[in-house]
Each structure stands twice: as C-alpha cells, then as structure tokens.
Design a protein around this nucleic acid. Structure first.
Lengths: 351, 351
DNA sequence: ATGAAAGCGCTAACAG
DNA sequence: CTGTTAGCGCTTTCAT
C-alpha cells in the first residue's frame, strides 16, 4: 500500500471549489469567512486528514513554533527533569522541541549553533559548555533569543535561569555545622563552570561565618571526563578515589558536602570500607536530590533543585523574548533550592 | 543593535553578480560550476555568515533531515541513555532530533503524532504508550516510517528495536537459582506493556526449567502511576510497600528479581528494616543497571541493557526505511542484555 | 558553465 | 465574504 500523499490546502480548495486562500483563512480562524464556508472547509479538512505544513508556513511567517534545547548530558538526572519540564511547558504554549546534546564538547556546541540556525528555531534554551569559546552570541545576533539554563556565562549579558547554587551550598554547609561538624570538606566537580564556583563560594561563606577554618584543602576536586561520550556525567568511581584520599588524611573531616549526589555514592563506599559510620563518624550532604538518594543507606540529606520551576521559567522567559515586547535588559533568575535533611546528617539519640 | 537579517542565496548572488541558481549549485557541491566560481561563492557565503534555510529546502525536497523521538519519560535512566545514543547517531548521519515526551499518556501520544506530522519529520522512533489506541499507524500511512523502541506493539506489523527482556529475566532468575535460591519472587511494573510481559515469561521459564514452583504469588505487581506527570517513572516508595508484603509472608522468598533497579531500592529498605541481610538471607537482582546500582550496599547484581546498541540500531533501521531501498518487511531486533553479578547475589565464603 | 522559469505549501496584501 | 497576485528561500527542469 503506497503511502497517502500529504494533503494540502489545494486539495481542500479543489474539492470544495474554493480558492486556496479562503481555505487558509477558514482554517486559520480569521473572520471574513462565512460560517458556512468555514464549517465546510473544516469538515473537508478533517475528512481527508489535512495536516498543515509547518515549513511552508514558517517560510512565510518566519516562525516555526519550535524551540531549541541544548543540553550537555541527558543522563544527568537534573537535566532529565529539566528536559521534561521544558518540553511540557513548551508544548503547552504550542512549541515543539529540537533537542541537541553537546556532551560537554565545545565542538559539538559549535555545531549545535549551526543546527539551530538552519532549522530556524524561534529561540533556544542552552546549558553552555563554558569552554574557551562562546558560540551563542552568534545565535543572538541572528535574532534568535537565547536563555542560558543552569549555568551562566560570567561576563556575558544574557538571560539566565537557574538555581541558586550558592545558597544551596551554604544551606548544606550550615546544616552540618549546626549538627556539630567542625572540619568540613567540599567535594566538587573540576569543571570551570559557574555552578561549581557558586557552590564553592557558598561553602566558603558558611565556613567563614561559623568561624571554621577553610583553606585550599577544604575543597577537593573530582576529575570530570570531558569530551568523552560518557553515559554518566560524573562517575561515583572518581569520587570514590578522591574520597579515599580525604578520609585517609590525618585530620579526617567530620563532614563532607558533595557537589552532586552521585559523589555521595563513592563517598559512602570509601566510608564503609574504613568502618566509618554515617552520620556518627562523618556527616554527608549531597546536592541534587536524585531519585535514589532517599533510598541509599543511610538516606542522603541533600539539596533539592527546583527543576520544574527552573524549566518552566526558562521557557516563559524565552517566549517573552520571542514575542519581543518586553524590555530587552538581560534577566537573571535563580530559584532557591531546598535542603532535605535525612539520615546522613541525623543526630542519633545518644542512648 | 538590531538583529542581523538572515542571509539568503539571493544575498550571495547579488554581491557576486551571479544567479541564485548558480550559488545554490556551487554550495551544494554539484558539478557544472567552475571551481573558480565555487570558491568565490564559498568565500562570500562564509563572509556574510550564510546559513541555509532548512524550511525552504524541505519544501522543495520533501525532506527535513529531522527525526522525531517520542519518549514516555526522560527521567527513566534507560531512556536518558537512549536519547543520548539516538541523538548522537542521528546527528552523525546529519539528522536533528525533535523530542516529544508522552508521559505515558495516550492523549499526549495522539498529539505527538500530530506534532510530528506538522513538522514533517522524515521518520520517528517511538516508545509507544501501549494503551487502548495505536495512533502510530497514521504516521506510517502518511509515509513517515516509524520504528518502535523498547516496547513493541503486539500484533502490529511494524519495525521494532529493543532489548531481549525475556532473556534478561531468564538470566537473572537462573542466576539466583544457581546461587541456591528455591523460592523466587518477581517484582514487576503493572503496566500492560510488552517489556513486562517478556520478563514475566523469562522468569516463568527459568523457574519451570529448574523445577521450581511458580504460581500467581510468584509475580507481584508494583502499582505504576500513569497519567501523572511524575519526575520518576517508578517510585521506590511503591516498591517498598510491595516488598514489605512479600517479606512478611510466612513463606518468605529467598530471592527477589525486580523489573527495574529502582524497585531494588525499596526492597533494600524493607529488608534492612527486618534485619534481613543481602545476600545472606535474600538474594536480589535488578534490571537496568542504573548509575547508582553499583554503589548501593551491597552492590546490586543487575541486568545491563544495551542502550548504545539499541539506540544506534533504531536510528540505522529508521534511516534505511527513510531511504526506502530496503525490503519493507517489518524487522524486529532485540539485543541481548548482560547479567552483571555483584554483591547482592554473591556467595560469601563460609568461614 | 551559467541563467531563466517554475513551483514546493502557505499567508498577506489588495481587489472585487 | 471571496478570489487574484505575489512572494517566503530554495532546488530542479530546461535553455543558452
């Protein structure tokens, strides 16, 4: 059975003996079409299974009703949630989603720009790789609004929607300090990205406020493999190795804050191997509240990220830019995360 | 600074005093253009930052170089991996990805069809919701090839690429039996989908082959919340509740196979609360090999799914259909998963 | 080797 | 209210 040729306005017009134009207007819901004709057209369109051709429309209207979403890695649970939230909100507003994965690679990122440009998306939501280059200015210059997601590009005046990582890290750090920690270490990704920088700042602040020592040994970096097509953004393995080093220090910390929940898994293992107990010997706080975090043993206290809000806000802001009515001053929105205290920082009854 | 108007072939043609046509051919790499002219055109295109308009091209060519990907939930780690693999392979072949999230909802799924049709994707890779309706036949009828991903639609003659769930479940079950289990329970999703059915079949087979009893109490269903926009596909909470019931049976099983690794988390908790140890008292095998599975305590034995292969194969098959040269007989490809034995089924040295 | 003309499907502007 | 004309940017005949 040969595929049914795609129907066009022409088909409807012919069989109803109308002009293409009238059919177009009838379907578009414009007035200046008699209700009778409109009904006729609608019925016929329905009958033959007419589906409008977006490309033809976009050619004349200049809008495709399509947003670009550029993500570094969909296997990052937070990004998975963001994809979900953004697709949902975009669709609710009538927009489709063109997804591009940059894999933390600047090369792919540059191609992504090209890809978005060709397909003429109306706007783009982008988690920038934050390498040496910033290819996103080009998109913007071509009249395609760009909203940065989660990671901001410092010194770049552009719209941004993300999480207040600084606040999150501060909350986490203050939490363990309130639980009696005196020697706290922060385990962070070694990517040169704003999220990390902010968390380090938040950590440092909290330590300073509490009058606790905080030097270069207080922040340790877990090597992140960039430019490798890794299924997982950060591997607990790497965190495990780093955790071992920390725990074997003569001045072993009594609390560890980690930059993402995956790291906590590696840390847990290193702790278990040394017979160290959580939270009795070492308090642990994660970042991200990934789906598994509540169910590890002990349940991981962590900072929950407002994925729904961030995703929806990014879409909303982008759409405002697309409509173009609003003040063009770049907007920076950070949503507050929430500390979720669980067993890994729970004060046990001293029985 | 007003956005730069998008450049067209016309722009290049004008400034070089050529016809649009020649410019088109020069850029398209056709012969019948002098090398000199071609170089000139290329340089000018580069200079003014020309980017081809995909919509215009698609209008005449009928191809957009775009694939649709319809996923039920990106927060499912397996689907996240598939998105990654598919985007990668698609891009390598020059295709962009239009992502639609169906959220396990038949309504959204129906709209997805419409969305894909409008945007005129060249083909679609689809995880079907498998409800009462099958809207995908329509796409196919309109000449848009569809490849089902992960879940097959029984009785529907269409291309399919996925995992051999039956084999996976058999491997998992045989594994615990080989480790001495005599009373095995399978915890499964309660969705009426082929993946679940296959796993139940594999489980049943393995039990039968070993001469072990397998009745309706051997397979328990974990309620799945459909039609709710849940960040997580299956919540360990639900599994936890079900696990409690199983473990409190007078004839408590000595091994549990779960349909996905998230369930194992809930099961672990129920076990821990009862003072039951893994693997000593109960063996546990998961399904999916999610990123956390290696790092829970004890490390979870699980069935690793070949996401890269499945994703790539789905793209390849779809592209074959798009080119349309191949035999149109529906192809069903299932890739073998791999059992990854870990601590949760490890025979401890009897010291 | 290059140009002119036609048309992909649709919408906007202008007539009637 | 409806039809005609024109054009979005590109590619494919068909000429030259």
């Amino acid at each position: 059975m040969p595929p049914v040729r795609r129907r066009t306005l022409r088909d409807i017009a012919d069989s109803l003996d109308l002009s293409v134009n009238t059919v177009s207007r009838a379907l578009a819901g414009k007035d200046s079409v008699s209700e009778y004709t409109r009904a006729l057209v609608r019925a016929e369109a329905e009958r033959i299974g007419y589906v409008p051709n977006l490309h033809a429309r976009s050619l004349v209207l200049g809008s495709v009703m399509m947003l670009g979403l550029v993500i570094t890695n969909p296997s990052n649970p937070f990004y998975a949630q963001l994809i979900h939230a953004i697709e949902l909100r975009g669709r609710a507003k009538g927009y489709s989603l063109l997804l591009v994965v940059s894999d933390e690679s600047e090369e792919y990122e540059a191609r992504a720009v090209d890809s978005l440009l060709r397909s003429g998306v109306d706007g783009a939501i982008v988690v920038p790789v934050q390498g040496e280059t910033n290819p996103w200015g080009q998109l913007h210059r071509m009249g395609v609004p760009v909203v940065f997601l989660n990671r901001d590009l410092p010194g770049v005046e552009r719209d941004f929607v993300g999480t207040d990582n600084r606040l999150g890290a501060r909350q986490a750090t203050e939490h363990v300090i309130a639980r009696g920690a005196r020697s706290v270490v922060l385990m962070e990704e070694d990517l040169p990205i704003t999220t990390v920088r902010e968390r380090v700042a938040g950590f440092t602040e909290a330590m300073a406020s509490a009058g606790l020592p905080c030097d270069e040994r207080s922040v340790v970096r877990v090597p992140t493999r960039r430019d490798e097509q890794m299924a997982l953004p950060w591997h607990p393995d790497e965190a495990y190795a780093v955790a071992q080093a920390i725990l074997d220090r003569p001045d072993r910390p009594d609390a560890v804050v980690v930059g993402n929940d995956f790291y906590a898994l590696g840390l847990y293992r290193a702790l278990a191997e040394r017979g160290l107990r959580v939270p009795d010997d070492v308090l642990v706080v994660g970042f991200g509240d990934y789906p598994f975090s509540e169910f590890v043993a002990p349940p991981l206290s962590t900072v929950r990220l407002p994925a729904e809000e961030v995703g929806a806000a990014a879409v909303d802001l982008l759409l405002e830019r697309i409509v173009g009515s609003a003040d063009p001053t770049p907007l920076k929105r950070s949503f507050a995360p929430t500390l979720v205290p669980r067993g890994s920082t729970e004060r046990r009854p001293t029985s």
